Simulated assay, not measured.
Amino acid sequence: MNRAPSLDRASASPAERYLSASENLLGIVQQQLPNISQAADWFAETILAGRMVHAFGSGHSRILIEELWPRYGSFPGFNPIVELSLTFHNLVVGANGQRQAMFLENVPGLAERILRNFDLSTQDTALVCSSSGCNVVPIEMAEQFKRRGVRVVAVVSQSHSDASATKHAGGLKLADVADLVLDTGAPAGDAMVHVDNLDTPVAPGSTIGGCLLINCMKAEVAARLSAAGQPPKVLSAGCTVGAERAVELFESAYDEHAHRLAKLYESVGPSI
């Protein structure tokens, strides 16, 4: 295997230092392969049972949820729970701005209101992503899943979480609630590169490490589904499978997603 040349940090450019730090994240993820395999076992069991893996992330953790599904190389079986009020950063200020999103991320009770929309089953599993693991809504989301008998896999930056103070009234962090914890490997504060004449680092790493974790799990789940005789309908590009096959896969995958999602709504709330 070709390895990158050793880096002389004294003379390395900021871009080179970022790439070197990213290589370190790859090693941290690789050390977690047993836990990744365990998460894949749980997720595959859920999908084979006709149920869904619920995936939640607030703030920029939304990126990891969208990496999971739907995009090229992904498949049905995942329920992306992405609240615009917690994740819509584009306007930055003004109506729907970032200040409001950061405030709402720490409002107690919001997680319960979100999950009130779904009829959950103990056959379900959940993935909750939060770099700090210290904001209220992701922690309460994990708590709400656990109260309903749903196993929870958390994706956090362990270093960042350890260095941060939780905003949860009970003093819990996401890692305290989850059944299984995966570490993106990103440092405290997330940013990985120091540059001259700037007292704060730049260029975060949690998305790199998080997407590595997400796609490792995705590949492992696909292998388990295929081995069980239920190969997934993978969203695929026309340049690889042909235009007609690509359309067929997209339509069938979206239909399967709709059918799985329908089960989450059919028995919501008390019987009428």
Rank of each mutant, 00 (worst) to 15 (best):
Gln123Tyr: 10
Gln123Arg: 14
Thr125Arg: 15
Thr125Gly: 06
Ala126His: 00
Val128Tyr: 00
Val128His: 00
Val128Ile: 03
Cys129Glu: 09
Cys129Gly: 08
Cys129Ala: 15
Ser130Cys: 09
Ser131Phe: 09
Ser131Leu: 12
Ser131Val: 14
Ser132Lys: 03
Ser132Glu: 03
Gly133Lys: 02
Cys134Leu: 02
Cys134Ile: 08
Cys134Gly: 01
Asn135Trp: 12
Asn135Met: 09
Val137Asp: 12
Met141Ile: 08
Ala142His: 11
Ala142Val: 08
Glu143Ser: 08
Glu143Ala: 10
Gln144Pro: 06
Gln144Asn: 15
Arg147Val: 06
Arg147Met: 13
Arg148Phe: 10
Arg148Glu: 12
Arg148Leu: 12
Gly149Asn: 07
Gly149Ser: 01
Gly149His: 03
Val150Asp: 02
Val150Arg: 01
Val150His: 01
Val152Gly: 05
Val152Leu: 02
Val152Phe: 07
Val153Cys: 13
Ala154Ser: 15
Val155Gly: 02
Val155Asp: 01
Val156Gln: 12
Val156Leu: 10
Gln158Tyr: 03
Ser159Glu: 15
Ser159Ile: 06
His160Gln: 03
Ser161Glu: 05
Asp162Lys: 10
Ala163Asn: 10
Ala163Tyr: 07
Thr166Ile: 00
Lys167Ala: 15
Lys167Leu: 15
His168Ser: 05
His168Thr: 04
Gly170Cys: 08
Gly170Leu: 09
Gly170Tyr: 02
Gly171Ile: 06
Gly171Phe: 04
Leu172Ala: 15
Leu172Tyr: 11
Leu172Thr: 07
Leu172Ile: 07
Leu174Ala: 09
Leu174Tyr: 05
Asp176Phe: 08
Asp176Ser: 06
Asp176Met: 06
Val177Gln: 01
Ala178Gln: 00
Ala178Glu: 02
Asp179Met: 00
Asp179Lys: 00
Asp179Leu: 00
Val181Pro: 03
Leu182Asn: 00
Leu182Pro: 00
Asp183Met: 04
Ala186Gly: 13
Ala186Thr: 10
Ala188Arg: 00
Ala188His: 07
Gly189Cys: 02
Asp190Asn: 02
Asp190Pro: 00
Ala191Tyr: 06
Ala191Pro: 03
Met192Lys: 09
Val193Glu: 11
Val195His: 06
Asn197Asp: 14
Leu198Trp: 10
Asp199Trp: 08
Asp199Arg: 07
Thr200Phe: 12
Thr200Met: 11
Thr200Asp: 07
Thr200Cys: 04
Pro201Asn: 03
Ala203Asp: 12
Gly205Val: 10
Gly210Tyr: 06
Leu212Pro: 03
Leu212His: 02
Leu213Ile: 13
Ile214His: 07
Asn215Ile: 05
Met217Cys: 12
Lys218His: 09
Ala219Gly: 11
Glu220Ile: 03
Glu220Arg: 11
Glu220Tyr: 06
Glu220Gln: 13
Ala223Thr: 08
Ala228Leu: 05
Ala228Ser: 09
Gln230Cys: 10
Pro231Ile: 11
Lys233Met: 14
Ser236Tyr: 12
Ala237Leu: 12
Gly238Pro: 11
Cys239Ala: 14
Cys239Ile: 15
Val241Leu: 08
Val241Asp: 04
Val241Asn: 05
Gly242Leu: 12
Ala243Thr: 14
Arg245Ala: 14
Arg245Gly: 01
Ala246Leu: 10
Val247Asn: 07
Val247Leu: 12
Glu248Trp: 05
